[in-house]
Nucleic acid binder design. Sequence first.
DNA 1: GCCGATTTGTCCGTATGTATC
DNA 2: CGATACATACGGACAAATCGG
Lengths: 242, 242
Amino acid sequence: MPKSKYDKIYHSLKTKIETGEYAFQELLPSENQLILTYDCSRNTIRRAVSALVTDGYVQTMQGKGIRNIFQPALQTSFTMGGIESFKESAMRNNQVPRTEVLCFTEINADPKIASRTGFAIGTDLYYIQRLHYLNEKALILNHNYFLKDIAANLTPEIAQNSIYEYLEQTLHVSIVTSKRVMTVEKMTEIDEKYLHLGNYNCLAVVSSQTYNSDGIMFEYTQSRHRPDYFRFQDNAVRKTIR
Amino acid sequence: MPKSKYDKIYHSLKTKIETGEYAFQELLPSENQLILTYDCSRNTIRRAVSALVTDGYVQTMQGKGIRNIFQPALQTSFTMGGIESFKESAMRNNQVPRTEVLCFTEINADPKIASRTGFAIGTDLYYIQRLHYLNEKALILNHNYFLKDIAANLTPEIAQNSIYEYLEQTLHVSIVTSKRVMTVEKMTEIDEKYLHLGNYNCLAVVSSQTYNSDGIMFEYTQSRHRPDYFRFQDNAVRKTIR
DNA sequence: GCCGATTTGTCCGTATGTATC
DNA sequence: CGATACATACGGACAAATCGG
């Protein structure tokens, strides 16, 4: 897989930070030194560093340098800022994923579904209900709606493994952006049946609309998470007030 | 307040998108056209556009152009991807904020507090408990811990208005990055007392560590949100798998 | 299917501004 | 004040993807 130059530098620096090559609060080599190390232009270094800033790994300070603010204990989290499939998240955390397909149907978007998902009325969709286990504990109940035109020939077998893997590797659909909204909702009977929430009466709900590289929204998903295992992590950057 | 060139272009394009000057799914002018419009270099345009991409406003497609994917209905949310004070969020949504200071004390970080907040043991802190109202409804119960050295001479009066305003405008502390973790927790008696959760038995909790431009973590805050009014919005960009 | 025009993606070099020490 | 560091901005070159003829 060909990586771009700035991406290689980004990963190289990221690894060095994660393995503790730079101590917490220590300054990284200056841009000029990094230019020599990686034999590249200043723009390329700046691009790699700016990606680390968005990841919350480092902080740049004009006139001072680039400070490492990575704390390993905090950066381990299941749900992250990026777009990841359940399988990928599990693997990143070295855990064993399993997916059970509860329901696999083809439906047509009626007005109610259309308004909830954002698809146009009358659109042909796959509606899939899946239960995701981690280390044999049911954690997430997923309701997926996929555009039939884009996610062609989806099967329960694919849904049991990884739909994203199929979309990207077989259909060459490139997933680009995803708009997500997180809320807390009262549990329903279905939630209780599959997730066994104990004495919690609500759960964490992540709704997302995902776009492919043609700008088409091809997926709407509602993920209902067990509250005691839900943890969403985020790094925010302050925009100066004007 | 002086704005940089790319920031002006960013805001100009953002406004045009929000006011519907470009239709949903329509292509924006190409980079070369934008260069002529704003009389600048290509890098400057690219920087402005890339900020719009992170905001989930547009999508860039190699060989095609820049597509507007802004949907007004979705972009209105109280809690957002950036760092915002309660007062700023309220004003952005044209609502009336009010803050009640429940408790204002100075404490010294014992081992328990230190491990929860991430401050070193023995650090001098302000501990503030505040209740935030929107349109006279109690929505958020905040537990703030501020480093006494940085947030010097904080008073209950300041806490009732806006601590961030004081930090930035009076003390010239620049707020840079914030690491946040979102979870769902069981409610406590204090939550129930102030937030009146009805028949919900849990709430949305956002814990954050905020750093200033010297790389010092000067704030730890736990925000406990009424679940029925909590809504966190986010735009994610897929990183290609390697 | 090919070719050329258009458009975004990557990369380089340079100059100047601004903050820190 | 000068040296160092990051921030902004410009210009140019080539690659890769898309689209129309």
